[in-house]
């Protein structure tokens, strides 16, 4: 077999192997952030995991052969679509549930007060290192504020600053103009900054 000169097209086998490794590395790097993004939007761990799995399968199935630098954009696009589809489906389901429960007895309307105590109880725990406690409090505030943002603003903000995509890439992934990406980002950051300032968090 003649050795291929440097810079020539790689063999098909090498390409498949390379794209497999690249895809694996890419997914490993992005999966946790993707899960959190889905969780911010859906506020449900199980649903978020399902959505991430769906997005991964779709990326592998349809775009595995694409060059590695295109994967982040493609994956974001697939992920956001999967999140939106899931929200649409659950909205229809919730409509049916609320219609049906309107006919049924409304016994489970009262939330269990114990549940809310459990979630707000973290302040009563014996304090470990002070810094870590503060950090986890800051994190939970940030996460809940991000979760409260309008969907498009959150998408734009997280893609720009968490996924480190530039404005053009974010616009391509979101299917909108660069101008609206800037607008979404600036509104999101204003809201977040105001919320963090109100909670006494310094940047």
């Amino acid at each position: 077999m003649v050795k291929a000169p440097a810079g020539s097209h790689p063999q098909a086998t090498g390409q498949t192997l390379a794209s497999r490794i690249e895809l694996s590395d890419f997914l490993a790097g992005v999966e946790r952030r993707a899960f959190r993004q889905a969780q911010f939007a859906l506020r449900d761990e199980e649903a978020a995991l399902d959505v991430v799995q769906e997005a991964m399968l779709k990326l592998a199935e349809k775009y595995a052969a694409r060059p590695a630098e295109e994967l982040p954009l493609l994956f974001q696009r697939i992920l956001q679509n999967a999140i939106r589809d899931h929200m649409r489906r659950s909205r229809v389901r919730n409509l049916w549930v609320s219609l049906l429960s309107a006919f049924g007895s409304g016994e489970e309307g009262e939330p269990d007060p114990l549940e809310s105590i459990e979630t707000t109880d973290t302040g009563m725990l014996p304090a470990g290192p002070q810094g870590r406690l503060e950090q986890s409090q800051t994190l939970s505030i940030i996460e809940s504020e991000i979760s409260k943002l309008p969907a498009r603003q959150r998408e734009a903000f997280l893609m720009r600053y968490w996924e480190e995509m530039d404005i053009a890439e974010t616009a391509a992934a979101m299917g909108c103009s660069e101008g609206s990406v800037k607008t979404h980002c600036s509104r999101a950051s204003h809201t977040l900054a105001a919320a963090l300032r109100a909670k006494g968090i310094e940047l």
Binding site: A28, M56, A60, E61
Partner: peptide, 20 residues
């Protein structure tokens, strides 16, 4: 997440090592 990634990679159309 790890299982999801493995499932996605297992679904790849061609396994490495097959001649084109």
């Amino acid at each position: 997440l790890f299982a999801a990634r493995q499932a996605a990679l297992a679904g790849l159309p061609t396994q490495a090592g097959e001649l084109s």
